[in-house]
């Protein structure tokens, strides 16, 4: 029982952090048709920025803010300089964002060196609560709460605000949104910057959870995010949320029995979804 609770908590915790990466990726794809291969790099920039700021200020709040700011800024520059020039050309977008990924990753390793940098959980969130045999790690609860709050906030934004209506309408038919007098390019930039900040937030939170940052964490989590959006359905916010929980839990449970296979299980899950429901659990049919 205690093992089960712990695995569930740890799976949910990982799932929430992947969700932060995946939801931005999926929104950007759904609205703009851009598959951002540098999304994991934004995650990593967030992680490094967070660790750097935390080591200097010992304030995790500042680390969170700095990480998100770093992600938003890099995302903004990236959208301006590259993506904006090639809207509508799917292949060129994949290629260009891959180039951006190379440069962003290499800039990090040029600044921080290729080795892992250790970090710690902020004192307030360190330790755990014990309920009989069940030990609940505080930081995991924290990530779950934050992830949940972000999910609620984004859901509220999408369903209630004008920007949300524009985004949902834009996913369905961009041309018609424009015809109603809305400059969709501005909305694109906004969503891109927002998605980048979310990915970076995921990075800041992931670093203390695994105790370090390293140069491989970007592509690793990006791949998990890909699996999530394939399972959940591209462009579906609800799909990203559910997909993240599935991927997080599946990874955690398998890791208990057979640690090596935790990624394999997710790849198999993805293959199954593709086979049975090619557009994902919540994907919109067709193109």
């Amino acid at each position: 029982m205690d093992v089960f609770v712990n695995l569930t908590l740890s799976g949910l915790s990982t799932g929430m952090m992947i969700f932060l990466v995946a939801s931005g990726l999926s929104l950007i794809f759904g609205l703009m048709g851009v598959l951002n291969f540098a999304h994991g790099s934004l995650f990593m920039w967030g992680a490094y920025a967070g660790v750097w700021v935390f080591a200097r200020t010992h304030s995790f709040t500042l680390a969170l803010l700095a990480g998100m700011a770093a992600g938003a800024m890099v995302g903004w520059v990236m959208e301006r300089l590259t993506i904006r020039r090639i809207y509508g050309n799917v292949v060129a977008q994949i290629l260009i964002t891959t180039g951006v990924m190379l440069v962003l990753n290499e800039l990090l390793s040029a600044t921080f060196g290729p080795n892992i940098i250790a970090t710690t959980v902020p004192p307030l969130l360190a330790g755990s609560w014990a309920f009989g045999n069940i030990v609940v790690v505080k930081y995991r609860v924290f990530t779950i709460v934050v992830g949940f709050l972000v999910a609620l906030a984004v859901h509220f934004m999408l369903s209630r605000t004008r920007v949300g209506i524009i985004v949902r309408a834009g996913v369905e038919n961009q041309e018609m949104v424009q015809v109603l007098g809305i400059n969709i390019r501005q909305v694109f930039s906004l969503v891109f910057v927002f998605g980048s900040a979310l990915a970076a937030l995921g990075g800041v939170m992931m670093a203390p959870a695994i105790g370090a940052v390293n140069s491989g964490m970007g592509i690793e989590n990006q791949m998990l995010a890909f699996i999530v959006v394939v399972i959940g359905g591209m462009g579906s916010f609800l799909g990203s949320a559910l997909g993240s929980v599935i991927v997080g839990l599946a990874g955690a449970y398998t890791a208990w029995f057979f640690p090596e296979a935790s990624l394999a299980v997710n790849v198999v899950l993805m293959a199954l979804v593709l086979l049975l429901k090619p557009n994902g659990l919540f994907g919109m049919g067709g193109e």
């Binding site: 424009q178 015809v179 109603l180 400059n183």
Partner: peptide, 8 residues
């Protein structure tokens, strides 16, 4: 003019 400007 882009479509949104014509609309405006």
């Amino acid at each position: 003019l882009p479509p949104y400007a014509a609309a405006r």
